[in-house]
């Protein structure tokens, strides 16, 4: 019993230190940002009912810059030239209806700069994406079209590539801003891998254009799930300015489900041991509990006639 009281004191002070330096200190260091569950309450609901057929006709204007690969529309330029022209490679629009919030997308088509919250970065230059819808009706039509071509199921990796992958590298998944690192072979005589060198040259050029456009190179997201809390990531993606005022990162406008897909991929790459931990953990703990039980029997046996 006396031992238990002492254990209680040790546990009490240990927890006090833990709560002080972990949850408490972090709550002081990191400001709390209230998330809105990807509902974008600052944007007014769009009442107009969209017609996908009208939208399809309107979408022809998009194809000057964007590809829609699922509909057989190729990209007008390769990623590096596109980054030279616009700063970053414009996204493929195949998944846009599946991953972005409807209301956000409609507003974005009408007023891209303010909907993406990037006005502070485009005071004296034009945002490469011009307004594509003049009124609620045409915005709703475009949204309806993109929804109509959206696939039912989007893989987490695809969600990442669409939403993050044109600015953020993910080297642990061999992903670069201009696509996957190609499998190449070096010349066994010279030791040089020309194809790889060429790819790296293109990548460097793309990054150079992007730095000119954004001011800095966006971070690699390989292990961002370990470097930032879940809460931070969620509220940051929902509204980057809420966590990092002045950042060049646009509000991407993901829907809740879209974000969950992206996050699933970040976690898959950044914390690959999670499924193994969940499998091995219980076995090790069970082993230790059995060990403790046997140790207890031994202890009781050794100490039974000592007092």
């Amino acid at each position: 019993m006396k031992d238990l009281k002492k254990l209680g004191i040790v546990v009490f002070f240990t927890l006090l230190v833990y709560i002080g330096v972990e949850p408490y200190a972090h709550s002081v260091m990191h400001k709390h940002v209230e998330g809105h569950n990807f509902k974008y309450p600052d944007l007014k609901p769009i009442a107009a009912k969209g017609n996908p057929e009208t939208g399809k006709a309107l979408a022809a204007a998009c194809m000057g810059c964007h590809s829609i690969k699922s509909q057989g529309v190729p990209a007008p330029m390769d990623p590096v030239s596109a980054s030279g022209a616009y700063g970053v490679n414009p996204p493929d629009l195949s998944l846009i209806g599946a991953l972005l919030d409807e209301k956000y997308l409609a507003h974005f088509l009408k007023d891209p700069v303010h909907t993406a919250i990037v006005a502070h970065k485009f005071k004296d230059r034009a945002y490469p994406m011009p307004p594509m819808a003049t009124d609620d009706q045409s915005a709703a039509d475009l949204v309806a079209y993109f929804k109509s071509i959206a696939p039912k199921e989007v893989k987490p990796k695809e969600a990442y590539e669409f939403a993050c992958g044109r600015c953020h590298e993910m080297r642990y998944a061999k992903w670069t801003q201009i696509g996957e690192v190609p499998k190449t072979k070096k010349n066994i005589q010279t030791g040089a891998d020309l194809a790889k060198l060429k790819f790296n040259e293109k990548l460097a050029e793309y990054k150079g254009n992007m730095v000119k456009y954004l001011g800095k190179l966006p971070p690699d997201l390989s292990i961002i799930v370990r470097a930032r809390s879940e809460e931070f990531l969620e509220t940051f993606v929902e509204d980057p300015q809420s966590q990092l005022p002045g950042t060049g990162m646009p509000r991407v406008g993901l829907s809740k489900e879209g974000y969950e897909k992206v996050f699933a991929y970040l976690e898959e790459v950044g914390d690959p041991s999670k499924p193994k931990r969940e499998k091995v953990g219980p076995i090790v703990l069970l082993y230790m509990v059995v060990f403790a039980f046997l140790a207890y029997l031994w202890y009781k046996h050794q100490w039974k006639d000592l007092h």
Binding site: L285, F291, Y296, L306
Partner: peptide, 23 residues
């Protein structure tokens, strides 16, 4: 073995907590 038996028992409790933290 007498002191050791108690040590090992306390250690086993510690290891349960330790491995809980690890996983």
């Amino acid at each position: 073995p007498v002191f050791l038996s108690k040590d090992v028992f306390v250690m086993s409790i510690y290891f349960i907590i330790y491995f809980y933290l690890v996983f």
